[in-house]
Simulated scan of single mutants.
Amino acid sequence: MGVFGKLGDTFVDLSVILWDNGIAILNLLTPKLKPGQVVPEGCPGHNGRWPEYVPPKEGDSRSACPMLNAMANHGILPHDGKNITFKELNTKVRETFNFASSFCFFVPNFSARFLNKSYAKDKFDLEDLSLHADNAIEHDASLTRQDKALVADQGKPDLELVHGLLKEATGKMPDGSPKLTIPDLSRALAKRRTDAKRTNKEYSESFFHNTFGSANSSTMLTIFGGRVDDLTPMLTEERFSEKWEPRVLDRYGLTMAKFNGTVIPVASGVKKYQKEE
């Protein structure tokens, strides 16, 4: 990419940050959405009514992201996980999980960049997002996948890792059911990174990948509210639980600005627990 291309990307990123901050302010000034009405009317999942879950079959494309895979498994994205436009991903993620429009543009646009594709014109398969590269979003020490150097197929969860993560939950919902907390995630990430370094001779990490790993994990606390009852089918089967809806009630969706209020404490906690080991 030339200098002008990089300057263009920087301008877009700065514009998205300003856009995101504007949405964050709007969310503060407008009423919250009512439970049951988070997914827009007419969209899959409205009032907790999700399309039928169909597990992936041989030849279907899946990513390292349980949430995207669940969308394909329920037919919100193409069930085969192939030939998806970045614009389609933007719209469907916005409707399904109540991320802000700024957030839903930024991540697909960033994905198009590291895949050397056009956000406006090109298509991708879900497995393309599992590209293991310094500038890509797939990373070692995932909480739901073994490292790509050990397991090439990143489209399937490692159930031992998932169950180990869910057992970390120390919080409680009002009904007494388990709930993951910020310290739980920080502790799990610290342990996972330590274990991955020991078992994967090709292990690599960077500030970017560690930050993305903390952000990826933080969706469990924001979009899912840390509720283990909802996270269990999502992480083990990549399926929405019955009557589930996003736990973010902000009228214009979860912004990156607000999301950082969870990501930063999670990432800081990882450093704390790593020092204690």
Rank of each mutant, 00 (worst) to 15 (best):
S130N: 09
L131D: 12
L131R: 14
L131A: 15
H132W: 08
H132Y: 12
A133K: 15
A133V: 06
A133T: 10
D134S: 05
N135A: 07
N135L: 10
I137L: 12
I137C: 11
H139D: 02
H139Q: 11
A141Q: 04
S142G: 04
L143F: 05
T144L: 10
R145G: 05
R145H: 15
R145F: 05
Q146D: 11
D147H: 09
K148A: 04
L150F: 06
V151N: 09
A152Q: 13
Q154G: 07
Q154N: 11
G155Y: 13
K156C: 13
P157T: 15
D158Q: 11
D158N: 13
E160V: 10
E160C: 11
L161T: 09
V162T: 00
G164Y: 13
G164S: 14
L165G: 04
L165K: 05
L166I: 07
K167N: 12
A169N: 06
G171S: 09
K172T: 00
K172A: 00
K172P: 02
M173R: 03
M173P: 02
M173D: 03
P174W: 01
P174T: 00
G176M: 02
G176F: 02
S177Y: 00
S177L: 01
P178S: 14
P178I: 01
P178E: 08
K179P: 04
K179I: 03
K179L: 12
L180D: 00
T181A: 06
I182H: 06
P183K: 08
P183Y: 05
P183D: 02
L185H: 02
S186Q: 01
R187H: 05
A188E: 09
A188W: 11
L189A: 05
L189F: 10
A190D: 03
K191C: 03
R192V: 05
R193Q: 12
R193S: 07
T194H: 15
T194Y: 11
T194C: 13
A196K: 10
A196C: 08
A196R: 10
K197T: 10
K197R: 12
K197W: 05
R198Q: 07
T199W: 10
N200F: 01
N200D: 14
E202K: 13
Y203Q: 00
Y203D: 04
S204A: 09
S204K: 15
S204V: 14
S204R: 15
S204M: 06
E205C: 11
S206W: 03
S206E: 03
F207E: 09
F207P: 06
F207T: 13
F208K: 03
H209A: 14
H209Q: 12
N210H: 08
N210I: 03
N210S: 15
T211D: 13
T211Q: 06
T211P: 06
F212C: 15
G213T: 01
G213I: 04
S214Y: 08
S214C: 11
S214W: 08
A215V: 05
N216G: 08
N216M: 14
S217I: 13
S218L: 08
M220W: 12
L221P: 01
T222D: 13
I223L: 09
F224V: 02
F224I: 04
G225S: 04
G225R: 06
